[in-house]
């Protein structure tokens, strides 16, 4: 038991337990849907957190990869007759390749330049999805063929809850292992001081590129899931606001905290649902609550709370 608690995979185990236990408290399919959405967004946020929290790079165009993933599970089955599950992987590969091509020049930029360049990339994807109506259905979007695994038609919110939950646990394991690998340590070195990392002989640009590709693939899988889950996809999945939402989830949960990714996604998915009872004031309240979080928990929810507990234990 002791070794289990001390393993670096502890967060993944905790998430697995949460995924399994939560449904006992769910009164209806609506809760399964919200749960599945939390897990899907958390997956994208874990990827983005690797980039932001560990490599110290901001991407304001991450929804672009959500879009690539989402539209690959539409275009693949509809135009090429490929099975949907395969298209999830195809989408991830395409996203990774795009991230590689885009990232090579972009990741040599620093600070605000990188943010602006990724912002441009995200907008470009949204424009292409809107304008290439022959392939994407244009602004009104397209309906997505349902996922079929073997002979099982995946349609209910509860099925997607389990698929998304399982994938998120997998994503956690991958991310946690990555952080303990030489690449992960190199990234943390870059995050702390790029110059020091260079002096140590770390190929900074290359490591950043690796993590950018990986985080794009996380987002792509999340995008594919979102499209398959919703059964309909519109270009707003790749929109600028979606990118900002992902960044907000990372910052809120805590940069550099893998568990924080899940918490950030959970807060920003569940809170708007909970606030609907305030009608006209929901947007204002949402903003207010986020401000309160950022003022009192400046480093993000998970790191701040963890620091408080660590302080008390002393």
């Amino acid at each position: 038991m002791r070794t289990l608690l001390e393993t670096r995979l502890l967060p993944a185990i905790v998430v697995a337990v949460i995924v399994v236990i939560l449904p006992y408290f769910f009164p209806s399919a609506y809760y399964f849907r919200v749960g599945a959405l939390v897990f899907i967004f958390a997956l994208a946020v874990v990827g983005l957190n690797l980039l932001m929290g560990f490599a110290g790079q901001v991407s304001l165009g991450h929804a672009g990869f959500l879009g690539i993933g989402a539209y690959s599970v539409v275009i693949g089955p509809v135009y090429f007759g490929l099975p949907s599950w395969l298209c999830v992987f195809v989408g991830a590969t395409v996203s990774g390749a795009v991230a590689f091509l885009v990232g090579r020049p972009i990741l040599r930029l620093k600070g605000h330049y990188l943010a602006v360049a990724t912002l441009g990339f995200g907008l470009l994807v949204a424009i292409v999805l809107t304008n290439e109506a022959g392939w994407t259905g244009g602004p009104d979007g397209m309906s997505v063929p349902r996922l079929a695994l073997f002979n099982w038609q995946v349609r209910g919110s509860d099925s997607w809850y389990w698929i998304a939950g399982a994938t998120l646990v997998g994503g956690f394991v991958l991310a946690l292992n990555l952080m303990e690998s030489p690449t992960g340590r190199a990234l943390q070195a870059i995050h702390d001081s790029e110059i020091a990392a260079l002096v140590l002989g770390i190929d900074v640009a290359r490591k950043k590129l690796t993590i950018f590709v990986i985080s794009a693939m996380y987002a792509s899988v999340a995008g594919s899931y979102l499209a398959l889950f919703n059964g309909h996809v519109t270009p707003d999945i790749a929109g600028f606001l979606r990118s900002i939402e992902l960044v907000a989830m990372v910052v809120l949960g805590g940069m550099g905290s893998i568990v924080g990714s899940l918490v950030g996604a959970a807060v920003l998915v569940v809170l708007p649902q909970a606030l609907t009872i305030f009608h006209e004031y929901e947007q204002a309240l949402l903003g207010f609550i986020l401000m309160v979080f950022m003022i009192f928990l400046r480093r993000g929810i998970v790191p701040s709370v963890a620091a408080t507990f660590a302080g008390r234990r002393k």
Binding site: S28, Y30, R33, N230, T234
Partner: peptide, 22 residues
């Protein structure tokens, strides 16, 4: 019972589920 989807199809779908289930 009115919900605001903020122009997002994804939110609309969630609220539709909520209207039906809840």
């Amino acid at each position: 019972i009115v919900y605001d989807d903020g122009g997002s199809a994804d939110n609309a779908r969630t609220f539709a589920t909520r209207l039906v289930e809840e």
